[in-house]
Design a protein around this nucleic acid. Structure first.
Lengths: 258, 258
DNA sequence: GAGAGCGTGTGACATTTATCACATTCCTTG
DNA sequence: CAAGGAATGTGATAAATGTCACACGCTCTC
């Protein structure tokens, strides 16, 4: 069965995406170890880290499901029972600090796992997750996932890459929040949405101004004022929740200066 | 050679420490896989994840060295050439934002690796490291370390645990900074030193007031005022850089309220 | 022991940012 | 379409925090 078309885990350099044959169809050689991705242009996609048996093992122990916008996927404090992989859509990670209003921590985009660090910690979900739009997720059996990590060092290595990258990203993002003033924070948030979340100069944030302000840790009114000033200065175009960044270099400048 | 006394990597639940026979003497059975730690009381220490061959491989490819207080261990921007493991002492992790004054990110204490997430990222050191006191470190060959991760899934899993735990810790710490006001930040910093770094109510911070203030992202004068107020309220005792926390529960209260 | 240099604490003031109040717009629902 | 409520923008004000200035005390050196 050389070069058979198979369901497979495709290393997308940054993360994995679990998909049906249709979306990430891959060719595998007779051992199922060397694969070629038809869709994915990432170089590291050329070699998958799982063999055919491992791939089948995962496919036999995963379920796929959908959530509607606003649905809660995970509650903080609950035990981790499955690995949850986000196939499509955006998810917000948040905590409810003492039954008050929620605190948004970050936005998770597709091709990411939800709460991976918690898995290797105390196995209790540290954060809650809710869908910002209609999403698709995969539930993977915890034991299967863990045994794969322990049996297949290359797979473990790729997971390490994923966790490390998230760790560094979060570190940078929070550094910025902890050390910067209002203008720098807003600029950072806009660049974050533009470069990391939407990868576009133009996007529509899935938040009210209130939530947006809470995300970056300032007051609602302050965020409105800063956005208005950015618009006035021609840095961006503003239409409700639609934002178009016109002069990203100025935002970077503002971010740099704190 | 059943139960031979060997040099070994001992899983200290949170991290690893590399040590000579003298300090972490372990018994291993004939395969060298099951070990018992004589000193360490941690439960997870009962089973090491490396066999005798792997242990010897690492011991043959590591060097141990010391740094003096103030010495720079790693410069940001340089390529990662070795895994650096901190055997004893405190190290500060910092960045030099644009040749200006340095920005301290965190304190690293013994039994930690330096810059592990960077290793699995782009292999460039993201941060600089300098010794806050006289320290001992181990340099481990990068290829040996990586091949161990890929060949031994259990070892990889333990590294994953370590990276994940750091990631969660940092996340919590920066959350606190990003969302809290001056009093909450100072309280957090004091609890951080007391509980995580020194594990004691009484300690001497290795920083000037200026550096302390920069670490938590406030002005020097503000930190002095807050500390003075804490002293006035009987929350702590203050003598220069020596700090004795008298009422930790009040600090936790302040931290909680922002 | 005198002086320089650094780290530190504290008051006065300036700036930033949050809070409050309210008008306007937008969206939903009947 | 009308009405109500939520979301938003903006001015006035208060509170928090940074900045500046300066004095004190400690250490080091000559």
């Amino acid at each position: 069965m050389s070069h058979a078309l198979i369901k497979i885990i495709c290393n997308f350099a940054r993360n994995y995406h679990w998909d049906s044959m249709k979306k990430t169809s891959l060719f595998a050689d007779s051992e199922g170890k060397r694969v070629t991705c038809r869709d994915c242009k990432e170089k590291s996609c050329a070699a998958a880290v799982l063999n055919l048996n491992e791939i089948n093992l995962i496919n036999d122990n995963r379920t796929e499901t959908t959530f509607r916008k606003g649905d809660i996927i995970l509650h903080e404090g609950t035990m981790i029972s499955h690995i949850i992989y986000l196939k499509s859509g955006l998810v917000k990670e948040y905590i409810k600090s003492g039954s008050e209003k929620e605190q948004i921590l970050q936005i998770v985009k597709k091709y990411s796992y939800l709460g991976l660090p918690s898995l290797f910690g105390d196995r209790v979900n540290n954060y809650s997750y809710a869908a910002l739009e209609d999403i698709k997720v995969c539930y993977i059996d915890l034991n299967v996932f863990n045994s794969l990590i322990k049996k297949n060092g290359n797979f473990a290595y790729e997971i390490l890459v994923s966790v490390s990258r998230d760790s560094l990203n979060n570190f940078h993002r929070f550094m910025s929040q902890a050390k910067k003033k209002t203008y720098g924070r807003v600029a950072d948030a806009l660049l974050y949405f533009s470069r990391i979340i939407y990868e576009s100069q133009e996007f529509e944030i899935p938040f009210t101004r209130q939530e947006f302000a809470e995300l970056i840790g300032i007051a609602r009114e302050s965020s409105a004022r800063v956005l208005a000033k950015f618009k006035e200065e021609g840095i961006l175009d503003l239409d409700g929740r639609k934002i178009r960044i016109i002069k990203p270099e100025l935002l970077r400048q503002i971010s740099k200066n704190g």
